[in-house]
């Protein structure tokens, strides 16, 4: 069974891009356009990986990751920030806030899937992993 990835992203074009790239590589995609919806989906569907924007309505990415990491059944799910905040110091701030990884926008589509897959266990990787 393909790994499930939850994408929390409020910018429609960015959401579509990430969804398209990952779906094209065989992943099951769940998506949410605000922080609260992302948390609800995470609790209901327990995805294998969460990709999270920082600037979102209702709950921003920092609040989402704090909540996820505080709930024992969700804390183990890797959460990667994909954000257009890429000034000096942003990466450090993101990792310090509890995210497992940081990728800056604009993403490089040729490398994106490989970079994201590093946060999945090899057995769940479609491209560069186990099978």
């Amino acid at each position: 069974m393909a790994a499930r990835i939850l994408i929390a992203e409020d910018h429609p074009a960015s959401l579509e891009l990430l969804r398209y790239l990952l779906a094209a590589n065989g992943y099951d995609i769940l998506s949410a356009e605000d922080g609260e919806a992302a948390l609800d989906l995470a609790r209901r569907d327990r995805p294998d990986l969460i990709i999270c924007d920082l600037q979102m309505p209702k709950k921003n990415g920092y609040e989402v990751v704090r909540q996820l990491k505080s709930e024992p059944v969700l804390a183990a799910i890797p959460v990667v920030a994909v954000t257009a905040f890429s000034m000096i110091g942003d990466r450090e701030q993101v990792l310090a806030a509890g995210f497992d990884g940081y990728l800056s926008k604009p993403i490089e589509p040729e490398q994106f899937v490989a970079l994201i897959e590093q946060y999945l266990p090899p057995s769940l990787r479609q491209q560069h992993g186990g099978q």
Binding site: A13, A84, F85, K105, P106
Partner: peptide, 17 residues
């Protein structure tokens, strides 16, 4: 920085796909 990168993400991303 944030606002300029966001639309570029779609442009570079979909050109790439």
């Amino acid at each position: 920085s944030h606002e300029l990168r966001t639309p570029l993400n779609a442009v570079i991303g979909f050109t790439g796909t």
